[in-house]
Simulated assay, not measured.
Amino acid sequence: MNQTLEQLKLKIKTISESYKDNPTGGWITGDGPINSKIMFVGEAPGKNEVEQGKPFIGMAGKRFESYLNKIGLTRDKVRITNTCFFRPIKIKESKSGRKTISNRPPRSNEIKLFKEILDEEIKLVSPKIIVTLGNVPLKRLTNYKSIGECHGNTIYNEELNINIFPMYHPSSLTYNRSEEFLTSYENDWNNLKKIVED
């Protein structure tokens, strides 16, 4: 079993290190147990994730973990992975020559690079349900284009023979501070709890 994880890691490393089309800043693999009932799929790693070699480590990760705990789960019981395994970055140079590096969403060709790897990881983990966090994994694993249309509902993916449960990315709570949004976000977690307990 671990051999296959090692093979996936090697593939991620090879793809990430030979990709030269756009700037990237390091790569990571999925994290968590292989025999997990529930699998979370994020977009792509950021700076903190690459530094620590794990998905969902930064601010959004802490928020994600607190909601995970609220529904009676802990990080070591779930598999967490990404749609794109390297960190897509933008480099800006100021007039004084100072460079700033920021995250950007992965481009569709970058997501395609890792399509087989994500599919293989899903087969390996064989979860009861996959939770997509944000629009990038949603578009990759369902026919929906926007999370607003379908969050908190179960969508069946025929190709993978698995139910997909779309949720907003935890970082969306930083941008949308309305009471209404928070309530709907918490409702989605409560729905997920019911599904997991069934």
Score class of each variant (00 low, 15 high):
residue 34 I to H: 08
residue 23 P to S: 10
residue 14 T to V: 15
residue 104 R to G: 03
residue 22 N to Q: 12
residue 120 E to V: 01
residue 2 N to Y: 14
residue 146 S to T: 12
residue 94 S to A: 15
residue 114 F to L: 05
residue 24 T to H: 14
residue 80 I to W: 09
residue 110 E to G: 01
residue 145 K to N: 12
residue 33 P to G: 05
residue 16 S to Q: 01
residue 165 F to K: 12
residue 194 K to N: 15
residue 194 K to E: 15
residue 170 P to L: 08
residue 21 D to P: 00
residue 171 S to N: 15
residue 9 K to Q: 11
residue 91 I to S: 12
residue 103 N to W: 02
residue 15 I to Q: 02
residue 118 L to K: 05
residue 73 L to W: 00
residue 141 L to T: 09
residue 80 I to G: 07
residue 24 T to F: 06
residue 4 T to G: 06
residue 50 V to I: 10
residue 80 I to D: 06
residue 62 K to I: 12
residue 133 L to I: 05
residue 198 D to C: 13
residue 141 L to Q: 08
residue 83 T to Q: 04
residue 53 G to V: 10
residue 130 I to V: 08
residue 111 I to E: 09
residue 111 I to T: 10
residue 147 I to H: 01
residue 186 E to V: 11
residue 15 I to A: 03
residue 192 L to Y: 00
residue 13 K to T: 13
residue 104 R to A: 01
residue 95 K to T: 10
residue 89 I to D: 07
residue 183 T to R: 10
residue 165 F to P: 11
residue 84 C to Q: 02
residue 44 A to L: 12
residue 113 L to Q: 13
residue 132 T to C: 10
residue 135 N to T: 08
residue 20 K to N: 11
residue 167 M to G: 08
residue 36 S to N: 07
residue 160 L to A: 03
residue 44 A to G: 15
residue 23 P to Y: 02
residue 146 S to K: 12
residue 197 E to G: 09
residue 163 N to I: 01
residue 194 K to Y: 12
residue 83 T to V: 00
residue 144 Y to E: 15
residue 36 S to K: 06
residue 134 G to L: 01
residue 45 P to M: 11
residue 10 L to K: 13
residue 30 G to A: 14
residue 150 C to Y: 02
residue 189 W to E: 05
residue 174 T to A: 13
residue 104 R to V: 03
residue 133 L to V: 06
residue 37 K to Q: 14
residue 196 V to T: 02
residue 37 K to S: 14
residue 162 I to C: 14
residue 92 K to A: 06
residue 58 G to Y: 09
residue 41 V to R: 02
residue 160 L to T: 03
residue 96 S to M: 10
residue 51 E to I: 14
residue 152 G to I: 03
residue 84 C to K: 00
residue 36 S to V: 03
residue 93 E to H: 10
